[in-house]
Each structure stands twice: as C-alpha cells, then as structure tokens.
Simulated scan of single mutants.
Amino acid sequence: MEIDIETIEHFLEGCEDHGNLSAMFKHRFPGVSLTRCDPSDLFGEIPFRRSQGFDIHLVDGRDHCWKITRELAEATGVVVVEKKR
C-alpha cells in the first residue's frame, strides 16, 4: 500500500484537535502507522516533507525493526514532529 503523503499532510494541517490526533489518524488512514515525537528524537534526520505545522518523516516497518526512509514506496507509516507555534 502506497502512502498518500499529500492527503496525510492536508489532514495534519487541518486537524485542530491535536490531543485526539492519533485516534483520528488511525480512523482516517487504516493500516498506516503514526508516531509522534519530539524534534530532538530525530535530530539530524531530514524530513521527507516539511509543512507549516509539522515535519513528516517516512517509516519503513517491513522488517523486524523500523527505520526512517526517503522512499515513499517503502513507507509503512509516518513520524510526525509538531513544530512549536
């Protein structure tokens, strides 16, 4: 399953209830994992996509351990780093 990064980006930017983001994401994008983390957790990693409120990284979780990837076709999920507003 290829991740529709454009739709995910629009969803994240339009989401006003950040406290319920994970549940809403799971409902909207079944089968795609979402991990939220602090910017320091991904220090040195270049985001796949930068948006106004979030940096979006792609995750490849097909093997035993997941890893950050730049390949959309390999992505099984996203890591979202919320920017401080």
Rank of each mutant, 00 (worst) to 15 (best):
I56N: 03
C65V: 11
E74N: 02
H10P: 06
D4Y: 10
V79W: 03
C65R: 13
V79N: 09
E74H: 12
F25I: 14
E71I: 04
I5C: 12
F11G: 08
R28V: 10
H64K: 09
G31L: 03
I46K: 13
F25A: 07
T69H: 11
V78Q: 12
W66V: 10
F48M: 05
H64L: 13
H27R: 11
D17G: 04
S33F: 00
F29E: 01
T35K: 01
S33T: 13
P47R: 02
R28F: 09
P30Q: 02
K67G: 08
E9Q: 14
V59K: 00
W66R: 03
E71F: 05
L34A: 09
Q52C: 05
A73T: 03
D4I: 01
V81Q: 01
F29P: 00
E13M: 03
C15N: 11
I68T: 08
W66P: 00
I5S: 06
L21I: 14
V79I: 11
C15A: 09
S33K: 08
K67M: 11
R62H: 12
R28N: 10
R28S: 12
V78A: 10
G44N: 06
T76C: 03
R36I: 08
D38G: 03
F11R: 02
D17Q: 10
R36W: 12
I46R: 12
F43E: 15
K67S: 11
G61N: 09
L12R: 05
K83I: 07
G31Q: 04
G19K: 12
D17Y: 07
R49Y: 06
D4R: 15
A73E: 10
A75S: 00
D41R: 01
E13G: 00
C15M: 07
E45T: 04
V59S: 03
S51M: 04
D55G: 04
T7D: 15
D38I: 00
L21R: 13
E2I: 00
G61V: 04
F11A: 06
F54A: 02
H18V: 01
F29R: 01
V80R: 06
I5Q: 04
R28Q: 15
G61H: 04
V79P: 11
G14D: 02
F11S: 08
S51C: 06
I5V: 14
D60I: 00
V78Y: 15
D63I: 07
E6S: 13
F48A: 06
I68S: 07
V78G: 05
T76Q: 02
K26S: 13
C15E: 07
P30G: 08
F29A: 05
E2P: 11
V79F: 02
H57R: 00
G44T: 01
F29V: 03
L58M: 10
L12H: 10
H27F: 14
K83R: 13
V81F: 03
D38A: 00
H64R: 06
V81W: 01
K26W: 14
S33I: 13
G31V: 08
R28M: 14
C65L: 15
R70K: 05
L72I: 01
K26I: 11
F54E: 06
L12A: 00
D60E: 05
E16Q: 09
E16I: 07
T35R: 03
I8F: 14
T69F: 14
H64D: 12
A23I: 08
E6Y: 13
S22H: 12
E6Q: 13
E2F: 02
H64Q: 12
F25Y: 11
A73Q: 13
